[in-house]
Write a protein that binds this DNA or RNA. Structure first.
Lengths: 200, 200, 200, 200
DNA sequence: TATGAATGAGCGTTCATTCAT
DNA sequence: AATGAATGAACGCTCATTCAT
C-alpha cells in the first residue's frame, strides 16, 4: 500500500524524503505513484485522511474495550503515541493548510472530535477528568505529544514522550495524580544516555 | 544577523526554505552566507547553538527573578514556548544527529541541564515538584511542547499549546493541581474555530 | 476514426499533443491506439498518407469540375488551403524524413504529382500559366501557403493566407494579373486587427 | 549567445528540442539558461523579440541600399527568407499567443510595420507595386514563405521557397511579371530529386 | 572580503509504450 | 480485440555550492 509506505518513509527519512524513494519502497514505478497521487500534496492529503481514520478507530476501540471512561482516555492518548505520526506532521507543515482544507479532512476531524467527546463527557461524569479540560485539550495535547523528539535517539525520545504523556494525563486528573511516572528522569541519566549516542 | 534571519525564515517558511532566501532576507549575497556557514548543516548548527544559549539564559533569568523554585520552573517552561523554536526542530530533523554531535552543542546541553537541575532540585526541596519528575522530564516536555501545531491557525495552536503546558505543569505538581487552565476547550469550541479558518 | 481525430488534435493543440489525448478524444483506450499504430511515427505516417489521398482526390475533382485548366489550378490551390493541413506539417517536422521515406508515401506523392501535372500541362497549353512555372512549383507553393499563421488570430491568418494564395496565382499567370486580391491589406488595417486580438 | 543558439537548435532539431540541448550547445549550464530565461516561453519570447529586431534592421537596410522602392521590397522579402526563421514559427505555435501579447513584441511589430509601410508607399508611388497590395500583405506573405518545407531535403526546400517568393513578388508587380523564376520546376525534376533523398 | 552569476546533480513530473485482464 | 493501469526513461526546473570579479 503506497499510503503506508509513504507514512513509513516520511517517519524514517524525514521531510526530505523523495517520492521516488516512496515509490521504490512501495514496489511500484514512479509513474504509478503519480497516477494515484498527482502531486506531493495529494499524497500527503491521503496520508492525513488515513491517519484520521486510524485515530477514529482508536477512539472507538478505546471506548469499547475499557470499562472506565478515564481508562479509555488513557488508552486513546497512549495509542495515538503509538501511531508514529511523528514526522508526518512536520512533513505536512508548510503544505498542510492547503491540504487539510478539504471536505474529507474536515468531516474526518468532526467525526474524531465527536468520538472523543463521548469519552471526555463520560470521564467528566465519572469525576475522573477535570471539568476544565475538554476534548479540544485532548486533541491539542495529542497533536503535540505524539511526535517524536528528532534530536534524540529513538528509544530515549520514546521514553521521554511516554513520561510526558503520563504527566499530562496526571495533570488532567480531577483528583491527586493517579499515575506516577515511575523513577525521575534525572539530568545525570539524560546526559549519560546522550553520551552513549555520541559514542555509538 | 544571519542566524536570526535563518531562524525566522525556517519558522515562517518551513523546512523547504532555500538558503538563497535566507541570504536575501539577511541582506547579503549567497557567497557571504557560505563564507560564514560553509554548508547547510553549519548554519543549522549555529542556530541550534544560539537557541541553546537563549534557553540557558532563560533558565538563569527564571532562577534569579522568581522567589519560589516552582515559579522559576513555570517561568522557564512557559518562556521556552515563547522562543518560537517551532519549526526549527523539524527543520533540523534529518540533519540533527550529525549536526548536534559536536563539542559545542554538547557542552551547551550540559550547561542547560545544570541550570535546570538547580531549579528542579530546589523545587523538590520546596515540596512543590513531584519527586518522580526530573530535569530530564522537563527538557523532554519542553522539546515536545514548544513546537507549534502546524495544522492549526497560529492563534489557536498557541492557545492549545499554552493549555497543554499548564496541564503538564499541573501533572508535575506534588499536590493537587494548582494551576487550573480555565475554561475547558470543548469540541464545539475547537470545531467553531477551525471552521473560521476555512472561511477566512 | 483515429486518423481524423489525430489530425484534429494536432491541428488544435499543436505538436505537443499527447497520444493519450488523441486516444481519449477518439473514444478508444490507449492500448487500442497502439494496436493500430505501434508508435508515434506510425500514426503520423497514417495521417500523412491520408492527407495525400485527399489532395489527390482534390486534384482530380478540380480537373473534372472546371472547364479551364487555369480554373482547375486555382480550384486545387485554394482547396488545399481549406484542408487545414496547418500544424500537421509542423508536427511532422523532426520525424518526417524517416516517416515519409516509405513506398506508400512515395507512391502517393507520385500519383499526386501526376494528377497535378495534367492540370499544369493543360494550363500551359491554354496559355494561361507561365511556361517557367511547373507542377513542382505548384506543390512547393501549396506546401508553404496551406499552413496557417499561428502568431495571428485564426480569421486574420486565414484572410492573409487567401490573399497570399491569390498573389502567387497572379504571379503564375502568363498574362497580366487576372485576379486582383481586392482592397489592399494596409499596415493600419493589420495593426487595428492585431490590437483587437489583444483586447479580446 | 543563448538566443542565437536557441534559434539554431529550434531550426535544426524542430520543436522537440530540449532546453538542455540548447544550454549544452550554448556552452552554459542548464541553470544559467534558466537564470536568464525562467521558462520555455521566456526563451521563445526572447527569440521572437530578437527576430523582430533583425527584420526591422533588414527593412531599414533595404530602404537605404536600394535606389528603387521595388528593389527594396524585393531585398526585404528575400532577406527575410535568409533569416532562417523556419521552425521557430512552428516552435512558437501553441505558446505564441501568450508569448507575443507583450508590450515589447507589439511595439516591435508596430516599428516593423512602419518601416515596411514606407517601402510599400514608395513602391506604390513608383507605380511598381499593385495598389491593391499593402504592407499587411507583404508581412503575411513573409510569414508564410520564410518557413522551410520540413518534409523536403533542405536544399530542395530552399529552392522551392525561393521560387515561390519570386512568384509572389511577380504577382505583386503592377505590370507584367518582371522576374521570371527561370526554368520550371517540373514534376519529373521534383520526383527525381525526392528519389535522391531516399537513396541518400 | 563581499558579491551574485554560473554550475550541474538531482528531483518532481510527464507520457510513450507495454501487458495483464 | 479492447482496455487502461503500470512502467520507467527522459525532461524541465531548482537550488546548494563554487568562483571570477
Amino acid at each position: 500500500m503506497i499510503i503506508d509506505t509513504a507514512r513509513a518513509v516520511f517517519a524514517e527519512q524525514g521531510p526530505a524524503a523523495t517520492l521516488d524513494e516512496v515509490a521504490r519502497l512501495a514496489g511500484v514505478g514512479a509513474g504509478t505513484l503519480y497516477r494515484h497521487f498527482p502531486d506531493r500534496d495529494s499524497l500527503i492529503h491521503a496520508v492525513l485522511a488515513d491517519t484520521l481514520e486510524r485515530m477514529i478507530a482508536l477512539a472507538e476501540e478505546a471506548r469499547a474495550e475499557e470499562t472506565w471512561a478515564w481508562d479509555a482516555l488513557d488508552h486513546f492518548v497512549h495509542g495515538c503515541a503509538g501511531l508514529r505520526l511523528d514526522l508526518l506532521v512536520s512533513v505536512a507543515g508548510a503544505q498542510v493548510h492547503r491540504v487539510s482544507a478539504t471536505p474529507e479532512i474536515n468531516e474526518g476531524r468532526a467525526r474524531l472530535l465527536a468520538a472523543l467527546d463521548q469519552i471526555v463527557h463520560a470521564a467528566h461524569d465519572e469525576g475522573a477528568l477535570r471539568l476544565d479540560v475538554g476534548s479540544g485539550d485532548v486533541m491539542g495535547v495529542v497533536g503535540l505529544l505524539v511526535r517524536g523528539l528528532p534530536t534524540l535517539p529513538a528509544d530515549l525520545g520514546d521514553e521521554l514522550r511516554d513520561r510526558a504523556v503520563r504527566l499530562v494525563l496526571a495533570g488532567m486528573r480531577a483528583h491527586p495524580a493517579p499515575t506516577p511516572p515511575g523513577e525521575a528522569m534525572t539530568a545525570e541519566e539524560l546526559s549519560r544516555r546522550l553520551a552513549k549516542q555520541l559514542d555509538g
